[in-house]
Design a protein around this nucleic acid. Structure first.
Lengths: 347, 347
DNA sequence: TTTGGCACTCCTGGCTCTGGAGTGCTAATA
DNA sequence: TATTAGCACTCCAGAGCCAGGAGTGCCAAA
């Protein structure tokens, strides 16, 4: 498993094997390469090179007399060093623009629609984490009485309306009372980061106005649901696209995936460190850290609100995926989403 | 395909075949019946009876020398006339109560959680339509200014907060102005059915107060998203459960299903007439009216808000499903959901 | 009307065999 | 030394075949 730097010809052969395997899903034979790509050498030479690439850990042979298939390390080298970055096709670019342009302004709906779009374009399973609270700022809270002893607290953040929560009171609260509380809270907390709007702020204001514990609870509840939870919600779409891939001819493969999508925790673990690094990331096979997902890969790209990443947009597919194309697709979609969010920002 | 009424023994045999096939997924042989169920007759007699049941269209034979399997008509007769209704097991009852008790009070979340619960309990694919507007009444609208020229309109209905919509204005609107408009709308429309709150009402109030077209648009937008659309949203969960069933060993089966779940239209068509009839309904195989779903069945049960059905709760599984158990499960869950909604009602 | 008996059908799984694809190695060549 | 033609070898995929067994249908007897 020594991995010396590859000379040009080996690099080209590795890249070609990946390319061909991605396209055909069949182990790649030396002869296929010499026929389809003009290497200028015979298939015997290619065989020698391939044997060395296998010794170096870049290729594997499903069985003795079969062609070669890239290993995790092979894909990794391809992604890091060999592949030609692609840019979006005009058709895709237009499609993204149009779809997101007419998308909802509500944050949740916007994320859902983006996820579905990405699923369709990538013909894979797409998933998108909903924004985390990092840069979300508090804009407004409003308490409304909607029935005797019943009210609703609405929290608006810079991303838009992000939570409402019903509450019940021990007694009727007058409209003025609620308005006074709302105004005082707004004055005290306006434009702070959501993470810095604390329960103690609420308690202070409520105490100052001489109001009851029930109102304090109502506001705190609404703030809590407005703050993203530790594991953000994740929207997913396009699972059925995976069924077209030959690697899922066996149903058991699929079961693990569907289960993982349904319990979002694992999905989140996969993208969490990409979120940290704040840049595009590709995880290949065993790099996903989950034996059940060992023949899958994930491409992850952050989307932004202003300067900082607030969520991730991912594509999950067979390890044999068109990495360059999917990276372009994810980046393009993330850019559009970021722009869309910036436009809709509440200042 | 004559279908004379079945004598007792034939009925018992048919019921047993269904029961056994549901349990084992293997064609049922005459000997299996005589061994496992004490029929008091020999397998030869059972064979004769089964041949007649086949002539009557209740059973089919996968091939000449195999056991029998129920036909659509066989299942239908079983469901309509032969099966023993079940009631919930105490364990399930407790599970439903506990899960829904700690569920969210927000309508959307509540439906999502109910769907997941039903998917887990039924070990099948569960889907639940979100409420349609039939009996939803208008409770409250509130316009809030949250930034210069930007506001949000919140609509609260009897089901709870059901829509918010951001709007922009040509000019700054004062808080009083917005409050006045909100109050006037509330006074005019309180407790009307959502379907009877019309754009003309909004226009009238806006005109009366001498306000601008932009405000009118804002309110109308919020009302529109609060009204359920023609095809309501449908929550689905548990697709991966289907993978455990032998009928999905072939991946192509699954593809159709996942596609149908993703585009909700077909799902809605399936339950739409059950919605009309306002009672539990079972659709078996071809009764679903879709060749791709011909070896599936669906159990559908309405849930209520007060006296009238506002949505449906369905379980989709292989035609070979435990009908009595799933009916009990769906009914029990629907009851709990209805009760939960009634408790949370905003009066 | 029921039932034991029996011939018959058809599926399933295992086995063998063959063709072909692809390799690795060796020896010749540039 | 790097390349290549040639060839033996390996292994898979698919076809064909066979045997076992499960289950039926029917007949004739009870």
């Amino acid at each position: 498993m020594k991995q010396p730097p590859l000379d040009d010809r080996k690099a080209y052969i590795l890249a070609t094997v990946v390319y061909e395997y991605v396209a055909t899903a069949e182990p790649v034979a030396s002869q296929t390469l010499t026929q389809k790509y003009n290497l200028g050498v015979s298939s015997a030479t290619v065989r020698n090179e391939m044997a060395e690439l296998e010794a170096g850990g870049y290729l594997v042979q499903p069985h003795t007399s079969a062609g070669r298939v890239p290993s995790d390390a092979g894909y990794r080298t391809y992604v890091d060093e060999l592949m030609q970055p692609e840019s979006l096709t005009p058709a895709d670019r237009r499609r993204i623009r149009d779809d997101l342009h007419e998308a909802s302004r509500e944050l949740d709906d916007l994320i859902d629609q983006t996820t579905r779009l990405l699923g369709r374009l990538s013909k894979s399973l797409a998933f998108v984490t909903k924004p985390q609270s990092g840069t979300q700022t508090f804009k407004h809270v409003q308490l409304i009485s909607i029935a005797p002893r019943t009210g609703v607290a609405i929290v608006v953040t810079s991303y838009g309306v992000s939570a409402q929560s019903l509450f019940e009171l021990n007694r009727d609260a007058s409209a003025e009372e609620l308005t006074r509380l709302s105004s005082a809270l707004n004055a005290r907390c306006a434009s702070r980061l959501m993470s810095e709007v604390l329960e103690s702020d609420v308690a202070a204001v409520v105490a100052e106005l001489g109001l009851g514990d029930d109102l304090r609870g109502a506001v705190v509840g609404a703030l809590q649901s407005a703050r993203a939870s530790e594991v953000p919600e994740i929207a997913a779409a396009g699972a059925q696209n995976l069924l077209d891939q030959p690697e899922f001819a066996d149903v058991r493969k699929l079961r693990s995936i569907l289960r993982i999508v349904e319990e979002q925790r694992t999905l989140y673990d996969i993208v969490a460190d990409a979120m940290e690094s704040d840049s595009a990331s590709v995880k290949i096979g065993h790099e996903l850290g989950n034996e059940e997902l060992a023949d899958l890969s994930v491409v992850t790209v952050p989307y932004r609100f202003g300067p900082s990443a607030i969520g991730m947009l991912s594509i999950l597919g067979p390890r044999r995926m068109p990495y360059a194309r999917l990276l372009a697709l994810a980046s393009g979609t993330a850019d559009s989403l970021s722009r869309r969010l910036a436009d809709a920002e509440i200042r």
